[in-house]
């Protein structure tokens, strides 16, 4: 089973991102679970969202997870040690930051020696979508890094999932996803 934990602030789209990834993978015949953990908080409060992806039906309904991937979609949460909780040495981190990797780990010491990929998803989403909603670019970076699904198939599914939105938003998201896949390091 593949396990993914998202760290976000409420309103940045981690729940939507987690559900989109689950939807994309379900279309390939996988079983999925997408859920989130939050209190009765307001927009801006730190929260986590989760994806489980497997070849068999997913029965475990507990919230606890030791993730294979940690996606941090808010740049300020990268500095919180909570992002390494319940991880292993093999857990891969994909985080959003304006800093290059070497400078980032000097401040976020808990990420030192960890398999780490960095992209500036806030900048990408602001420039391509026009709003700082970093969920789809981080998703694009995840698909590129993990190779979990063929990139073009992923883009086709995402386009369909976003089809309820205006064309401008769809195009912006697709550009942001492609750019994130190119820029993630």
């Amino acid at each position: 089973m593949l396990r993914i934990r998202w760290h976000s602030r409420a309103g940045q789209g981690a729940v939507t991102g987690a559900k989109a990834l689950a939807d994309v993978m379900a279309r390939t015949g996988k079983f999925v679970q997408a859920y989130s953990v939050y209190g009765a908080e307001k927009r801006g409060a730190p929260m986590t969202a989760y994806d489980k992806i497997d070849d068999n039906p997913i029965l475990d309904h507990s919230k606890w997870m030791s993730p294979d991937y940690v996606l941090v979609i808010d740049p300020s949460l990268v500095y919180q040690e909570e992002i390494v909780e319940n991880t292993t040495d093999d857990t891969i981190f994909i985080v959003t930051s304006h800093l290059p990797k070497d400078e980032l780990v000097k401040i976020a010491k808990h990420l030192e020696g960890r398999p780490l990929y960095v992209l500036d998803a806030i900048k990408i989403s602001q420039e391509e979508i026009g709003r700082p909603i970093p969920n789809t670019p981080v998703l694009g970076a995840f698909v590129k890094v993990s190779g979990i699904i063929d990139f073009d198939t992923f883009l086709e599914s995402i386009e369909d999932i976003l089809s309820k939105f205006p064309q401008k938003i769809i195009d912006g998201n697709l550009r942001a996803i492609k750019r994130a896949a190119e820029e993630v390091q």
Partner: peptide, 12 residues
């Protein structure tokens, strides 16, 4: 159905 564990958990 269990609050959040089912109501807010997306599955196939």
């Amino acid at each position: 159905q269990d609050g959040f564990l089912v109501s807010h958990t997306a599955q196939v």
